[in-house]
């Protein structure tokens, strides 16, 4: 397998095309950040509302670079032993019991305590070797020979202590395991950190990363995304659907429909064999992209208006570009 950085992007545009081939439509901003991060070998901190493709971006990057994706989901209470490594205590205990006899043999003929301990010393590291080590995502990422894409998901959910621990990993791509010494990455992983902004990240962490904010896509981009993701959808319906969603996003909602929801809805409409939006159909399928009762009620109020607008806009687009 080829190493991560043997891959070459020639320009920002090249990133866009390669991502498009992997079915990810990247905006100019996303492509620039990826291109930069790749060349600077720096992590990217991705922020944005849920469902705009933050995690998908990392997956696509792994696909484009043809390296594995290692994902670490953060949560409150996540610590080193779950992120980096843990000793297999059970195995260690079991082995000491099983090997009791062997230990006896080993000690045979040893004179005095000092000599026994001397003999033991020549074996002691056995129990703290990689055989007894349970590797966790970060450890795996550092050990991946061809490099990998490391996705640290929802970093804002982790504790501050963990964030501090990440600093060492992210700046030098090495960690110290007291029993084994320092482990350094063979090939620097390409790191994505995602955040939903429930907590402010520390300055030190931010400084080590490039910052990328992915907003909801504009209509043009969203149409392109739908075109690649739901290819069976007719052009007229696609235009109307995107126009409708864009209108819904102007409402004050608890949870705005994001790209993933647009895609879901498009798939549903495809199954229903729809050719154009109509009020009843939209009303019946509102719950595919709105997840709260209040939101559905709010959208329902404006439904007729929005569908009308969407159809108008669809017709307009069609007239301009049949």
């Amino acid at each position: 397998m080829k190493s991560l950085y043997e891959h070459r992007f020639n320009s920002v545009a090249a990133v866009e095309t390669e991502f498009a081939q992997a079915q990810y439509i990247a905006s100019r901003q996303i492509a620039t950040s990826v291109y930069l991060a790749f060349n600077l070998q720096k992590p990217i901190l991705v922020e944005g509302p849920a469902g705009v493709g933050k995690t998908e971006l990392a997956k696509t990057m792994a696909e484009v670079l043809e390296v594995p994706l290692i994902r670490m989901q953060c949560y409150e209470g996540l610590d080193e032993s779950k992120a980096l490594y843990e000793w297999k205590y059970g195995k260690q205990l079991l082995y000491t019991q099983l090997l009791k006899d062997k230990l006896g043999e080993l000690m045979e003929g040893a004179k005095g305590l000092a000599q026994s301990i001397e003999r033991l010393h020549s074996h002691d590291d056995l129990f703290f070797s990689e055989h007894f080590l349970e590797p966790r995502p970060l450890y795996k990422a550092l050990h991946e020979e061809a490099g990998c894409v490391l996705l640290i998901d929802e970093i804002d959910k982790s504790d501050q202590e963990f964030e501090a621990f990440l600093l060492e990993v992210l700046s030098d791509f090495q960690v110290s395991v007291p029993e084994l010494g320092t482990i350094k990455a063979t090939v620097r992983p390409f790191v994505f950190l995602t955040s939903n902004n429930t907590r402010e990240m520390s300055d030190a962490l931010k400084r080590r990363c490039l910052h990328l904010y992915i907003p909801f896509p504009d209509a043009k981009l969203e149409r392109r995304i739908l075109e690649t993701r739901v290819p069976g959808l007719s052009k007229s319906l696609r235009n109307e659907l995107v126009a409708f969603i864009q209108n819904v996003r102007t409402l004050e909602l608890k949870k705005q429909p994001s790209v993933s929801e647009t895609i879901d809805w498009a798939k549903v409409l495809l199954l229903l064999n729809a050719e154009h939006l109509n009020v009843d159909m939209v009303r019946d399928t509102l719950n595919t992209f709105l997840k709260f009762e209040e939101d559905i009620a709010a959208a329902d109020e404006r439904l007729v208006n929005f569908v009308g607008k969407a159809r108008e806009e669809g017709a307009l687009l069609h007239a301009r570009n049949p």
């Binding site: 620039t32 930069l36 922020e47 902004n197 490039l210 910052h211």
Partner: peptide
Amino acid sequence: DREVLKHALGATLAKSMDER
């Protein structure tokens, strides 16, 4: 490319949405 330059500088210099 002006746009690319803006995004590139933005990614390196701004550290949060507000700063962006």
